[in-house]
Design a protein around this nucleic acid. Structure first.
Lengths: 216, 216
DNA sequence: CCGAAATTCTATAGAACTATAGAAAATTGT
DNA sequence: ACAATTTTCTATAGTTCTATAGAATTTCGG
């Protein structure tokens, strides 16, 4: 049986099933994808897919979970580490954008298709997602507390804005594998910290200088 | 016939058809929506819908066009106006976010479902979309040229980042009609200009002061 | 109020899709 | 190599969907 024992073959094939489903869902959307598509990408026949998933909807649920789970764990590690604020922010953005490049399909499916799941199957995902946002908020709160950021900052807004921006880039990253990830990461971080307006910085000797942190 | 004459009834019903399609596509996605759903929302029977659209796909095309057309026109007006840079940026963000609130469904469909259209039907949309991005890029270029922004700025990056951030908020705005749009607009503009780091500003008298432009 | 044109309806062909059942094949432990 | 178990296959019932055809109804200018 396929119960949670350590059957190697099953685990391997189940992973393949989830990744095949992720791939097809990412490409065609949940409703646009057929179980036949998924099975074919996996190399089995349509009916056989039901050995791994009770239903197409359950497949979506597992893909979404797979897409966000590790990613949130990684976020938690960053948030609870003892790096300075700026490093945490950059690590967050790096994690977010790299996830798109490496595991892009399942994460994309989570972001774009999860609302086709019934309420009860979405509960766990909601939990993970808002845990993610809270971790990010906490990072901003820390930044404000330690004086790295203005103390007038709205941390909830900040978290949402960063997530939105990263997701926006995510779409581009998935579509265009030639994009320079590191370049985008740097520029995103710099934007969030400093904005685009020319910034004058106190130098050690007390004089002022233009801070050109990111000259292409 | 329904040819482009000034038939009032037809034009009215056609608008209704497009908005019904937009509504259903926004809710269920292109593939998740059926022509029956659309017809019912419009108040007619399934088969009658084909009087207005040659196919479901064509309906998607018209919804997407409807969703982005006016919006891009508005952007062009902003870009070619003679406001100062900061006003243009804020007007852009305002336009973007307000579009979501007012015409959210068709715009959401354009953003989320347009890639299910075949290449040829997407050509016009691509044109409009990249025209939009170019207008925004031009605004940033102007900002850099006039000294309002650092001259090291990557305008293509800037445009993409702002669009991504706005789209991210768009999803939230559609889902939660209680959000304070003006508040978000201000904070987004401030973020893009100044970032979250505490900023010191030359005051007229030459002394320095902390600029707290956005205190919740 | 008549006749033409526009709009909607009913009915259906034909295709595709999900999920299930039971047979067949492959794998594994002994 | 045998028997039990796991995995895949074939076949199909039952549903839903798109698109079309032709009939029926509504609208509207004169």
């Amino acid at each position: 049986m396929a119960t949670g024992t350590d059957n190697n073959r099953y685990r391997h094939q189940k992973q393949l099933a989830i990744r095949s489903a992720a791939s097809v869902f990412a490409e065609k959307g949940f409703h646009g994808a057929s179980t036949k598509d998924i099975a074919e990408r996996m190399g089995i026949k349509q009916g056989s897919l039901y050995y791994y998933f009770k239903s197409k909807e359950e497949a979506l649920g597992e893909v979404c979970l797979f897409g966000i789970e590790e990613y949130v764990l990684h976020m938690k590690k960053i948030a609870t580490s003892d790096q300075p604020f700026e490093s945490k922010l950059m690590a967050t953005i790096t994690s977010h954008l790299s996830s798109y490049r490496e595991r892009n399909e399942a994460l994309k499916v989570h972001n774009d298709e999860r609302l086709y799941l019934p309420e009860d199957k979405r509960a766990k995902l909601k939990e993970l997602g808002s845990s993610y946002r809270q971790q990010l908020e906490a990072i901003f709160e820390e930044g404000a507390r330690t004086g790295a950021l203005r103390n007038s900052i709205d941390c909830h807004f900040a978290a949402q804005a960063v997530i939105g921006m990263c997701n926006g880039w995510g779409d581009n990253i998935v579509r265009d594998p030639d994009l320079d990830l590191f370049d985008i990461i740097q520029k995103c971080t710099d934007l969030v910290l400093n904005g685009f307006v020319e910034r004058r910085k106190k130098k050690r000797d007390g004089s002022e200088a233009v801070a050109t942190e990111n000259s292409q």
